[in-house]
Amino acid sequence: MATFSERWASLRNPSEATAITFQSAVLVFTAVALPVHIWSILHVLEELPAWLLRLSVWELLGVIAYTQAFALFESLGIFLIVLIPALILPKWLFANHFVALAGLLVFTNSLWAILLQQNYATVSDWGARQFLPWLALYALSMLAVYVSVLFSQKLSQWIRSFLDRTAVLAGLYITIDVISVLIVLIRNLPL
C-alpha cells in the first residue's frame, strides 16, 4: 500500500488525471438521483392514503407529478453543483476518482440532510454554540470522504461498482420524471 506522501505525490501528477467522461457524469447523476428520488417517493407514498381519500385519480396524478417533476429539477440542480466545480477545479484534485468522490460526497451529504430533516424542530431552536460543533463534524466528514476515497482504491472501486449497478434505477427515475413533467404541462395547458 502506498504511503500518504507517495499517494499525494502521485495525485499531483497531472498525467494521471483523466477528463470527466459522459459515462462518469451519468454515474454521478445516478448518485444524486438515488437519494433524492428514494426520499421523495417514500414521502409521497406516506401521504398517498390521505390523498386517496380526497382526490380524484387525475388530481392525484397531478400532485404526484408536481413532486416528481420537482425531484428531477432538484437532482439536476445538485448534479450541476457537483459537476461545475469538477469542471472548473484542477483535475488532479480528483485524479481518477471523480465518480467515487462525487458519489460518496453526495451520499454523505444525503445522510446529513436526512439527519437534519429528522431533527429539524430541534435544530431550528439551536444557537451558534450548539451549532458550531456539528458544523465542525460536518466539515470533518467531508474531509474524511475526500481522504478515504483518494487513498482507498477498494472503496473507490466499490462505490463505482455500486453506481454502475444502480444506474438502471436512474433511468427509471428519469422516465417517471419525464412523464411527470408531461402531466404538469398538460394540466397547465390553456383550455
Binding site: V36, W39, H43, E46, E47, V63, T67, E74, G77, Q117
Partner: peptide, 16 residues
Amino acid sequence: LTLRGGGSRPSSLFLS
C-alpha cells in the same frame, strides 16, 4: 408536500 411536508417531512431532501 415538496417544500413544507404534508403530515410528515417534505419530499424534497435538499431544497426543502
